[in-house]
Design a protein around this nucleic acid. Sequence first.
DNA 1: CCAAAAGTGTTATTGATACACCCATGC
DNA 2: GCATGGGTGTATCAATAACACTTTTGG
Lengths: 223, 223
Amino acid sequence: MVNTKSHEYEQPGVTVDLVLFTIHEGKPMVLLTHRARDPFAGRWSIPGDFLRKGESLDEAAWRVVQETTGVQDLYLEQLYTFGDPGRNSPARVITVTYLALTPWKPFAQPPSGTTAALTWYPIDEIPELAFDHHEILTYAVNRLRAKAGYSNIVYGLLPETFRLSDLQKMYEIILNKTIDKRNFRKRMLETGLLQETGVKDRTGAHRPAMLYRFKQREVVYFD
Amino acid sequence: MVNTKSHEYEQPGVTVDLVLFTIHEGKPMVLLTHRARDPFAGRWSIPGDFLRKGESLDEAAWRVVQETTGVQDLYLEQLYTFGDPGRNSPARVITVTYLALTPWKPFAQPPSGTTAALTWYPIDEIPELAFDHHEILTYAVNRLRAKAGYSNIVYGLLPETFRLSDLQKMYEIILNKTIDKRNFRKRMLETGLLQETGVKDRTGAHRPAMLYRFKQREVVYFD
DNA sequence: CCAAAAGTGTTATTGATACACCCATGC
DNA sequence: GCATGGGTGTATCAATAACACTTTTGG
């Protein structure tokens, strides 16, 4: 079973790519970078980089986050590994993908007429992407939707404190359905994952809302 | 962001490793191979091999199955990718792991006193393993347990036709709890995933049992 | 005082669970 | 005829879903 003819084996490059979601103005958005160089110069792609020496996969994913966004508070989990030959040109590359969530933060918007190197795109208005990044993105969206249904994963999309209506809105956007307010609040508070901050949000011409936080910023599964 | 100093990048080996489960005599078992060579000569490990040229990850996983077991009918899904530096000695290796399920089949048992190259081990009697295979195995068991709870994944552990009591037994073993017979049958038949074969099993000194099959041998999620 | 979002309980429906006896066969 | 697993229905309980009005604020 051991074959020493090295030409039969791949010595592929290994990259770590990042599907970073946020929600802004009621829409799920994904972070894309504009490629200056070949392959696929001029196309958009999800951020990524080659794995470095001595670096774990998680560390590489974290580094990609830092290099592209500088965002500190985010949720990060390994998603899937793509390695079909022919998914890239021309070299064989294995790509370990990560799913990440962050509260909305703007990135420098380019002057109109020019192109930003880094932008949020609404997930239903994605341009042509490099490599097989469209497939990766589809996979990530499905995972996010599924996991939102049975976990508190959306905490990654919210700032540290938030109104219950903010939380509800996140679920409604991701699951793409409306939710009854009273039932939602009841269930959420019953999970015991939330904590009143004592502080009230007093923006807007209406009754102030209590701000809550998640007791623990880590994934917990319901059911 | 692009750095051309190649020494900063890994050119790691990529392996595809397989956690193959079955159930036998009421116990979940995992397939292990005995390592003849270093590293970890003399230890047991889960089967795997280096990725070959032109081969997709799924194809490599399938090849590993064929080379080690020859089993044709099995369930196979990508599990997780392990790539910490230091998980192997001495070279850096990225391992894409797969979870697989198969109906019980015996493999040649060695004459007592000698060691088989390939054996089923009950998952609660696992010996010291090579590399980080213990971690991989733990991860796989958790995934199997979780997924059994909300999918028909156990079809991979059963032959094409089976009695409802066989199916129930699978769930009981994996979920490690007893299930009410009438409720189980009701729920299972209500899913619409099962189909009577019309054939009855007439082994044993008792009333013959109807044999069923899954209409489709692919994963379907309940709820 | 008007608009806008916050906050709050009860009822109806649905799904999940608990539970016990007769049936068909081989030996 | 006895031991073994196959096969079946109902009643209770728990969880989910439906539903509308009052409160507090800013302008």
